[in-house]
Design a protein around this nucleic acid. Structure first.
Lengths: 165, 165
DNA sequence: CACCTCACTTGCTCCAGGAAAGTATGACCG
DNA sequence: CGGTCATACTTTCCTGGAGCAAGTGAGGTG
């Protein structure tokens, strides 16, 4: 990745992973995409990223194979959309792990609350990042909801769409 | 954290987590510390970080409560040492998740190989980031080894040392 | 007391980030 | 068929952190 020294050839997989993920915006963009926010302006408004940086990151994510850009026929015109590939959807366990770490080790701000990660297949909250702690099944994105009490929403995620619609 | 816009007050826990973790060096430093590399020069030489950036990151990590700085009486003089707190040791599932993602979705470089994460309590490799997929126990850092075939080593991690030695 | 090691700090240049404004494309509107 | 609007960027400008290299200061050593 051109934003920093290139770690894609490192032998340690943690370091190779950080070559892509060691940037605060990457994960935030992918979080939005997995919540069904696929359009440029949706992601920008949701994450607060600047136009220039968002454009660069989206290009990077497409190059790295985490996102796929598709032209989507909306109500009255075609939009550009970014959807997660399997590599992108597979960031979900990392997001869960980050979320669980933050809930345990950062101060809950005013008005916040515990975000439960719910495995819709079995209906239970999971305490593991990658495997449902209740039923033992692997957590697939399209079977997971994030329950956000501060927004009074329970949002179902969307999975990979490797095949064009 | 002063390196970027402050996200510590965000309601979304993913974003609060990225306030600390959205930097490539943080995770790399913590990886080294969990491998028992606790001294300034060890971390610098292992990770390739520059002196100035390492010093700033160590200060940040101490401020954020992921590391604790201790003066350690060595062979002939006292050294500064950085050891993981519980908050620091709890990054382990995130590292595992990053490692597993990278092994699945990045190209293995020349001379590389699969890094197995071994739960020493039961002797099995785990495929889950936070819970041993073989025996179901939570993965504690001091019961985990990383098997690195390219170095022909199997390195036992060290856990949190919240109480001064 | 000159010298060494360790853990930083300082200075310098360069490039990425953030904010705001500009632009290209296509759609719809009269 | 020209004007306006929405969308998805690109460009410009400024500031600040990254990376490199050299310096500094506190202990300990011969």
């Amino acid at each position: 990745m051109p934003l920093r020294s290139d770690w894609s050839e490192e032998l340690c997989p943690v370091r190779r992973g950080l070559d892509v993920l060691g940037d605060p915006w990457i994960m935030l963009i992918m979080r939005d995409v997995l919540h069904g926010m696929t359009r440029f302006e949706q992601i920008r408004d949701s994450s607060g990223i600047s136009d220039a940086v968002l454009a660069r990151r989206l290009r990077l994510l497409v190059d790295e194979g985490l996102l796929r850009k598709v032209d989507y026929r909306g109500d009255r015109r075609t939009h550009a959309e970014y959807v997660a590939t399997e590599a992108g959807a597979d960031l979900l366990p990392i997001m869960h792990a980050v979320s669980m770490w933050a809930e345990k080790h950062t101060a809950l701000p005013e008005g916040g609350g515990h975000m439960a990660i719910v495995h819709e297949s079995c209906g239970s909250e999971t305490t593991s990042a990658d495997t449902c702690s209740a039923c033992g099944e692997p957590l697939r994105p399209d079977a997971v909801s994030w329950d956000k009490p501060w927004k009074h929403t329970r949002e179902r995620l969307v999975g990979a769409t490797d095949l064009p619609a």
